[in-house]
Amino acid sequence: MFESWKVKMNHQSRPTLHASRNTQHATRIAYLVLFLALLFASFSSASAQSSAPTDDEVNAIARQLYCPVCESTPLDVCPTDACKEWREQIRTLLAEGKTEEEIFEYFEQQYGARVLAEPPREGFFWLMYLIPPVIILAGVVILFRSMSDWRKKPAPVEVEADEIPAAKDDYLARMEEELKKQK
């Protein structure tokens, strides 16, 4: 039902709040969708909400979503017009009685996995969650094995820290002298 509803992204912040033609178009479709959804809801036994969703209810969901254009800015605080439209979309979906999960699903279907705050736990994306613990565990194992190695082994032969091979010593002395001369 939602396939036809693609909001064109407009990422230039404008000082005025006049809706663009795109927005008007989208709003008209949104009303149509809303009407259809309400119709649908009235026939099903879904728990449709009677009162309009508050800003806080919208933000609670928007906080966990990211639009594909504004890198790393959660939807609830993104100031662009496109994100404003997305928030209105969430409001509409909430008004239709959609749950949080359903709204996430809807956005993911429309725009891809990147709108979610984390990669979905499926297929290739499992690597996201598996690699760090594996590496950290490997680190723990390496650390404890080398620690017990250190305890078992006798102290290795000491490397005399200040001792420099004789040939180098000579080289050093020459260098120092040279530098003194230059001062």
């Binding site: 966990q64 959660p74 996995a113 979610l116 705050a117 990669p119 290739f124 996201m128």
Partner: peptide, 26 residues
């Protein structure tokens, strides 16, 4: 390790699956 992986995983994902993902605060 967590930070490094979180930063580069979206790039790896894009490279291997063609799909970008977001790794956010949670």
């Amino acid at each position: 390790v967590v930070c490094f992986w979180g930063v580069i995983f979206p790039l790896i994902s894009e490279l291997f699956t063609g799909q970008k993902v977001t790794v956010g605060p949670p």
